[in-house]
């Protein structure tokens, strides 16, 4: 048994898992307050990656690429929310799913029309090249940095959600949005802010992940589905559930890849089926939330 391989895959799983946790967290925030499952969430991930890709081509600055990725998604998020989504807050969940699904198709097709359908390599930032000797293993720098960046971002989102006024409103809204309305808080603005926050997290993750996976217009779809699996495992609407679910999902994929790469994805869904049978509300979900 090759322990180095296992250690490397454990770290790969952590890197993949932290990206999934970020994306799933965006999904969970949007669902938690707005009660909206955003099927266009993967598309925000993809748009972020493309915005970062273009910025990086012109400026060769990864920092700017990340910033632009988040900003472009911010703008797209605002437009989408103001024009379409806001009409759907009071509609049944099926309608919300359908309209975000339609939005995803339209945005993917717009990106395809602009950039073509080809997969394009996102160059590694210069500081991310090379590898570090961890003592027991030589491991690529960038993946280690992804883990650190994701951890910092998760911490930052935690602080926003648990230490700021916006976070207070968001969490109160998750518990009982009616009371929040009654207390006279401008819900429209809060809804917009939350939707855009969730979208930006996805766009940000898209740029961070792009040097590992390369960009193409359909990259959002698989991320969306995997983040669904994450929230089903962790429990939809739960902060810690997203993080734990993300890491579990990342590790399942990476560890299965060692022995049976063909079954890596299948294994992930089997795990999800198991959670569903044993604990339908997810590891951190509360019974009756939905």
């Amino acid at each position: 048994m090759n322990w180095h391989l296992i250690a490397a895959q454990l770290l790969n799983g952590l890197a993949l898992g932290s990206i999934l946790a970020l994306v799933a967290l965006g999904l969970t925030i949007t669902f938690g307050l707005l009660g909206l499952v955003n099927f266009a969430h993967g598309v925000f991930f993809m748009v972020g990656a493309y915005a970062g890709f273009v910025t990086f081509q012109y400026t060769h600055s990864f920092g700017l690429a990340v910033l632009m990725g988040a900003l472009v998604v911010l703008v797209v998020g605002i437009v989408v929310e103001r024009v379409v989504i806001r009409l759907f807050y009071r509609r049944p969940p099926e309608d919300q799913i359908l309209v975000t699904f339609g939005l995803a198709i339209v945005i993917v097709e717009i990106v395809r029309a602009i950039f073509g359908g080809k997969t394009q390599l996102f160059p590694m930032p210069s500081w991310g090249m090379g590898a570090t000797n961890l003592g027991f293993l030589v491991y690529p720098n960038y993946r280690l940095q992804v883990i650190v960046i994701a951890a910092i971002t998760l911490a930052a989102i935690y602080l926003v959600l648990y230490k700021t006024r916006l976070g207070l409103i968001v969490r109160a809204g998750i518990d009982d949005s009616l009371i929040v309305n009654i207390l006279g808080i401008d819900v429209t603005k809060t809804l917009l802010a939350v939707f855009v926050l969730g979208a930006m997290v996805a766009g940000f993750s898209g740029v961070i992940d792009a040097p590992i996976v390369a960009v193409d217009p359909d990259m959002g779809a698989s991320v969306l589905i995997e983040s669904f699996v994450v929230v089903v495992i962790g429990g939809l609407g739960s902060f810690s559930g997203s993080i734990l679910g993300g890491i579990i999902a990342g590790e399942i994929i990476s560890i299965t890849t060692i022995w049976a790469p063909d079954y890596a994805q299948v294994m992930l869904y089997l795990a999800m089926a198991l959670v569903l049978i044993l604990r339908p509300q997810g590891l951190f979900g509360t019974e009756g939330r939905l």
Binding site: V37, P93, I225, V266, L276
Partner: peptide
């Protein structure tokens, strides 16, 4: 499996299980 949940969960689950078949 999927009918253990309804609404949004049902949609997400069917999507995920649909992917299993694709990979299989």
């Amino acid at each position: 499996l999927c009918l253990r949940q309804s609404g949004v969960y049902f949609a997400m689950l069917t999507l995920a299980f649909g992917e299993v078949f694709y990979f299989l």
